[in-house]
Amino acid sequence: MSSSGRTDDVATSVLTALGNKYSAEILCAARTPTSVQDLSDELGVPIATCYRRIEELESVGLLQCEGRQLSDEGRRTNVYRRTLDEFAIEFTGEGPTLSTEDRSAAKNQIQEQME
């Protein structure tokens, strides 16, 4: 893993966000910039729930807004992409420790070309 361990509070926040229904599915589906509507449609997640999960994942740094794109209806909409490909949580100390492997810009470009 590329990142050193993060604090107990961050690890706990990540665990809480990932413990919510649909969070893991949203992260897996957001390998390329994807709108909330597309994530909702693809995963069968109610749109309001999808917005809440994205906000939670973004607040703990697992998902980020990559910009805005035009939707099929011609509206500008935010698109989101996950910020990492893997993480590990250790419970060996006094509190959980989180280690991550962040996505590189090069990996993002390769993924987009393959789509």
Rank of each mutant, 00 (worst) to 15 (best):
Q113A: 14
L63S: 10
S13F: 02
N78P: 11
V10P: 00
Y22P: 00
R52D: 15
T100R: 15
G95A: 13
G95V: 05
E58R: 14
D9S: 14
L84M: 12
T12W: 07
I26E: 02
R75H: 12
A29Q: 09
R52C: 07
S13Q: 11
L43C: 05
R31K: 09
G61W: 04
G44H: 07
S71L: 06
T83C: 07
S2H: 13
R81A: 08
T92R: 06
A24M: 08
V60G: 11
P96H: 04
V79C: 04
E115H: 14
S13T: 05
F87W: 11
G61M: 01
Q69G: 00
D41C: 06
R6M: 07
D8W: 14
T100N: 02
E112W: 10
E94H: 15
I26T: 05
Q64L: 09
L98K: 08
T92G: 07
D85I: 05
Q109K: 10
T16K: 06
K107C: 12
P96C: 05
F87M: 13
S23H: 11
L98M: 09
L57Y: 12
P96F: 04
Q64D: 13
D8C: 14
G61Q: 01
T49N: 12
E86V: 02
R52Q: 13
D72H: 08
L43Y: 03
N108G: 14
V10H: 08
S4K: 04
E86W: 13
S35K: 03
E66V: 07
E73T: 14
G93I: 01
D102C: 08
S3P: 00
D9N: 10
S23Q: 07
S23R: 07
D9M: 11
S4I: 01
A48F: 00
S99F: 14
L98C: 09
C28F: 02
G19Q: 03
A48M: 09
F91C: 09
T34N: 01
N20E: 13
Q109M: 07
D38T: 10
G74A: 06
F91K: 08
T100C: 15
R31A: 07
Q64A: 15
D38R: 09
S71E: 06
E66F: 04
K21P: 00
L62S: 06
L70A: 15
T77S: 12
N78Q: 13
L98E: 09
K107E: 15
R6I: 01
Q69Y: 05
E55K: 11
I89M: 14
D41R: 13
T83Q: 03
E112P: 00
G67F: 10
P33S: 01
K21M: 06
D102W: 10
A30D: 02
Q69E: 13
R81C: 11
S13R: 12
R31P: 00
P33D: 01
E73D: 12
G95Y: 15
Q113V: 12
R82I: 10
D72G: 08
L39Y: 06
E101T: 11
T100D: 02
Q109L: 10
S23G: 08
N20Y: 09
R81E: 09
T49E: 14
T7L: 02
I89D: 11
E42S: 12
R81G: 06
Y22E: 00
N20Q: 11
V14K: 06
L43W: 00
A30L: 01
R76V: 05
V79R: 07
S35A: 06
L70I: 13
G93D: 12
M114I: 13
